[in-house]
């Protein structure tokens, strides 16, 4: 009854009295008008600059346009999927090195994690795109984007996994050890599965980072969504329309990934609470 689960929106304000209700109603109308005016101004801007002309937008009525966009999206998804898998594998190794009992491994892992987290993806991309070829490392464009994106994501992945492992109560380890389990199997059979479950939502939302980083694929001329958008633009001269549509596609996909992460998090929390 004390509303412990209410969000801040519901409790920050006192229940409005008649005067406050009138004021809220008034400001609500004003702000609706302001938002409508803003929207109208944007639409007007499109209109006066001729950007509402059907010739710019009619290409989106064609199947071929969407097939081409879809092909680009497929390229994007392939990079994102490969990067996620690689980042997870590398993050897993880094996490284990970070928490194991060998000091030297701890230090090396910490160093790599800090580099991965502290250097922009673009710089890694330039490393594989501009510099690696100077040492005879000629990679196909797929790997020129996938490798740097994975390297950039592996540090945060390792830290996310580690926070999960750290969140597992000590009693779990002690119980397993007292049963005579060896430390490796304590980690892999008892601690990690539980910790992993805590961080699944975080790992899902980190896919958003990977997905966003794939947009740099145009730098290495890999045919992703952004690159195909460029081709569409040069064919149809509809730059504004195409880029806006592409931006919306990215936003919607990332929004859905975040939604999924939030849903999984709610379930995980409910399951953890139920287990207690």
């Amino acid at each position: 009854m004390n509303g412990a689960h209410a969000s801040i929106r519901d409790v920050l304000y006192d229940a409005p009295g008649p005067k406050a209700k009138r004021r809220i109603a008034f400001v609500t109308v004003i702000s609706l008008l302001a938002l409508a005016a803003l929207l109208a101004a944007i639409v007007r801007r499109f209109y006066v600059t001729g950007q509402l002309d059907p010739k710019y937008w009619s290409i989106f009525l064609r199947y071929t346009t969407w097939r081409f966009i879809g092909r680009g999206l497929l390229g994007t998804l392939q990079v994102a999927a490969a990067s996620s898998v690689l980042a997870f594998a590398a993050g897993m190794l880094l996490m284990m090195a970070r928490v194991c009992r060998y000091r030297v491994l701890n230090a090396i892992a910490t160093f790599i994690i800090e580099l991965s987290r502290g250097i922009p993806t673009l710089l890694f991309i330039y490393f594989f795109f501009l510099l690696a070829p100077q040492f005879g490392l000629q990679l196909p464009s797929f790997w020129r984007i996938t490798l740097p994106v994975s390297i950039s994501a592996m540090g945060v992945t390792a830290e996310a996994l580690r926070s999960g492992v750290n969140a597992v109560p000590r009693g779990q380890t002690e119980a397993a050890v007292s049963l005579g389990m060896r430390s490796a199997s304590v980690f892999f059979k008892i601690v990690f599965p539980q910790g992993f479950r805590y961080v699944i939502p975080t790992l899902i939302s980190e896919m958003v980072i990977v997905f966003k980083d794939t947009t740099y694929a145009y730098v290495v001329n890999y045919a992703d969504l952004m690159q195909n958008a460029k081709v569409l633009i040069s064919n149809y001269d509809a730059l504004l329309a195409v880029y806006l549509v592409v931006a919306v596609i990215y936003i919607v996909i990332n929004y859905l990934i975040n939604k999924l992460a939030a849903t999984v998090e709610r379930r995980t929390r409910a399951a953890v609470a139920a287990a207690k």
Binding site: D14, P16, P18
Partner: peptide
């Protein structure tokens, strides 16, 4: 008891 404001 007033319904709102400083008085409340």
């Amino acid at each position: 008891m007033p319904k709102e404001g400083k008085k409340l």
